[in-house]
């Protein structure tokens, strides 16, 4: 007899249904994707004790234990409690009960590249921001996919998230330290947006408007004439997604935000979601909520009460370009339209 399982309840508990009836895969959240390596023993123990001994590295940087039997889930939840306490409550300052496992799955694990703690390209400490964002979006019934990348290389694939947050810098140029070698100019040309040039006095000119904020000029400079200011900046790439109907790459929603502005904007996400769904959380991906509301309403909600830093720039409009697996997929009877009525 097939075991009676409430798969929606278990999914919310971060156990994903298997094709084998009665089996589930645990997904441990790792917000910011950096934890003490000692926790690997926890997932190893779960895989070897209640799973089949295999371990899956989750697509969103979760630690996954496949093939867990429904009957064992309470034991697994009890066993992972110290992990939830340490990672969610202590590391991210999330306020939640940990004794019955995860309360929600909708806000997906916040991905992050290794960023400025290791990477020679990174501008910012990605984990630190991811952990602060976790506190804003979790626990919460509204779906959202976020990634944090340390530089505009966007190894966190922010262009395919609801919110792709990308660490940037506004390099400072000290003209008297410049030897006019042109290393930054060549690097900007080969790796970034070609905004630098050497003038007839053998110093550097910059078109600040088109600077992508990658910091390659700083890394290339042999004299420290270019340096990153202490103040970090971020851009937010909005509305990217994968999927069977309307996959699309995100577009720039905001540029040159400080961390404070990013957090202040993201804090409004649950409020916006609640409004779009009329307070009834259903399993629907965050990007579709933006489609239903329309960008202008989204923008109004997300910027509500936000004190933007003076450098901040916000998209007036966004025109996404979707991949339509079926041509004119957006053309349908009026009563099938999902806009907020």
């Amino acid at each position: 007899m097939v075991e009676d399982c409430n798969i929606k309840k278990l999914r919310n508990n971060c156990f994903r249904q298997s094709k084998v009836p009665g089996e589930f895969m645990l997904q441990l959240r790792v917000p910011g994707a950096l934890i003490d390596a000692k926790w690997l023993d926890v997932i190893k123990h779960v895989c070897q004790t209640w799973g089949d001994g295999t371990f899956h590295l989750g697509m969103r940087q979760t630690l996954n234990a496949p093939r867990i039997k429904a009957k064992d889930i309470p034991a697994v939840n009890e066993y992972i409690q110290p992990y939830l306490q340490a990672v969610e409550c202590d590391m991210c300052d999330v306020k939640m009960q940990t004794k019955d496992g995860y309360p929600y799955i909708a806000p997906r694990n916040i991905m992050a590249c290794i960023g400025g703690i290791h990477c020679i390209k990174g501008n910012v400490y990605t984990q630190r921001l991811a952990q602060k964002l976790e506190k804003l979006i979790y626990p919460n019934p509204y779906h959202i996919k976020i990634s944090v990348s340390g530089c505009p290389n966007d190894c966190g694939k922010g262009h395919f998230q609801d919110f792709g947050i990308i660490g940037c810098t506004k390099p400072i140029y000290t003209i008297d330290r410049c030897i006019g070698c042109g290393a930054c100019v060549r690097k900007c040309e080969s790796a970034a947006t070609r905004v630098l040039s050497l003038n007839d006095k053998n110093k550097v000119e910059k078109d600040p408007c088109c600077c992508v904020g990658c910091g390659e000029c700083v890394t290339a400079c042999p004299t420290g004439a270019w340096r990153r200011p202490a103040k970090d900046f971020y851009k937010i790439i909005l509305g990217g997604r994968t999927g069977k109907q309307y996959p699309r790459m995100g577009k720039m929603f905001a540029n040159w935000l400080t961390e404070e502005s990013v957090l202040s904007i993201m804090k409004n996400w649950p409020k916006f979601s609640e409004w779009v769904l009329g307070g009834k959380p259903i399993y629907i991906h965050g990007g579709h909520l933006i489609d239903r509301a329309g960008y202008q309403r989204f923008k109004d909600f997300m910027l509500d009460g936000v004190n933007l830093n003076p450098e901040a720039m916000i998209a007036e409009n966004i025109n996404w370009a979707e991949t339509e697996y079926r041509s004119n997929i957006h053309v349908k009877p009026l009563d099938k339209h999902l806009s907020v009525k």
Partner: peptide, 15 residues
């Protein structure tokens, strides 16, 4: 020490 004056993120330089 110049805060954040280094080649890589958050590294200082000394001048």
């Amino acid at each position: 020490r110049i805060s954040c004056g280094g080649r890589y993120a958050k590294d200082d330089s000394i001048i």
